[in-house]
């Protein structure tokens, strides 16, 4: 177990954001995507970040995942201050400790479902045989055992998103971040996928944070955080 994972298990919270600001320059005009967001997430929580488009939920998710930088405040994930990490260390953190699920699936089109899942293990340097075994296990746990040889183009949207989840969880990350994972799915598939995420949270204790504007998603999560104009307005029914 990595130092990061040990910290995450031993000391809650998994995520701690304090006064996080993210400012973009648009035609030399500063645009505040995050205006001092404070958020603490403990191990084993399943959190939804809700809010309208432009509310800053995806930005906050990207900042927590180390995909985006922040301009002020502090972000600590698994007890590690992200501001103190070099780009290479951030990449290692993403590779080993954070799983990502994107709205547009973002599978590699030329690889089969199993190869997509194996890909991230290959980046970690896992041996070929173990890669295959773990990828098949991940696909099996998401009900995709029979579809491992199919390429993304041969799978439905729901199946592709499950493959993306399999890819995100195969590394056994401390934190799973999902950005609008159901935005491209119909309601039936959305429910099936959310049930998968809930099972991962409840049965494996995986900490999950998902950005969404879909009310159905919030029904499955254990904590709902609402954002507006780059600020957290409500946290678990309590106004922030």
């Amino acid at each position: 177990m990595t130092e990061f994972a040990e910290n995450a298990k031993a000391t809650a919270p998994v995520v701690e954001c304090r006064g996080v600001q993210r400012i973009y320059q648009q035609d030399s005009v500063p645009v505040y995507a995050l205006r001092g967001a404070d958020l603490t997430i403990h191990a084993g929580e399943f959190v939804s970040l809700a809010g309208p488009s432009g509310s800053g939920k995806s930005t906050l998710l990207n900042v927590i995942g180390g995909l985006d930088a922040f301009d002020a405040g502090s972000v600590s994930v698994g007890g590690v201050d992200l501001a103190a990490l070099t780009p290479a260390q951030l990449a290692q953190t993403r590779l080993h400790n954070v799983g990502f699920v994107f709205q547009a699936y973002n599978l590699i089109p030329v690889l089969s479902a199993r190869e997509n899942v194996e890909f991230i293990l290959q980046l970690q340097g896992v041996a070929s045989q173990e890669r295959r075994s773990r990828a098949e296990q991940a696909l099996h746990s998401l009900g995709l055992a029979e579809l491992g040889d199919r390429r993304p183009g041969e799978l439905s949207g729901g199946q592709q998103q499950r493959v993306a989840i399999a890819r995100a969880i195969v590394t056994e990350p401390v934190l799973l971040l999902a950005d609008e994972p159901t935005a491209n799915l119909d309601s039936k598939t959305t429910s099936e996928l959310l049930a998968v995420l809930r099972d991962l949270n409840q049965q494996q204790g995986m900490t999950i944070v998902t950005a969404t504007h879909d009310p159905i998603v919030m029904e499955y999560t254990s904590r709902q955080v609402t954002m507006l104009d780059g600020e957290i307005r409500q946290d678990g029914g309590v106004a922030a």
């Binding site: 995909l67 780009p87 290479a88 993403r94 590779l95 990502f100 973002n106 590699i108 890909f119 980046l123």
Partner: peptide, 16 residues
């Protein structure tokens, strides 16, 4: 470009 962004989001370094 999108695929390269994914690679880096997953943890690949630009040189990789």
């Amino acid at each position: 470009t999108r695929e390269f962004g994914l690679f880096m989001a997953l943890g690949m370094r630009p040189w990789q």
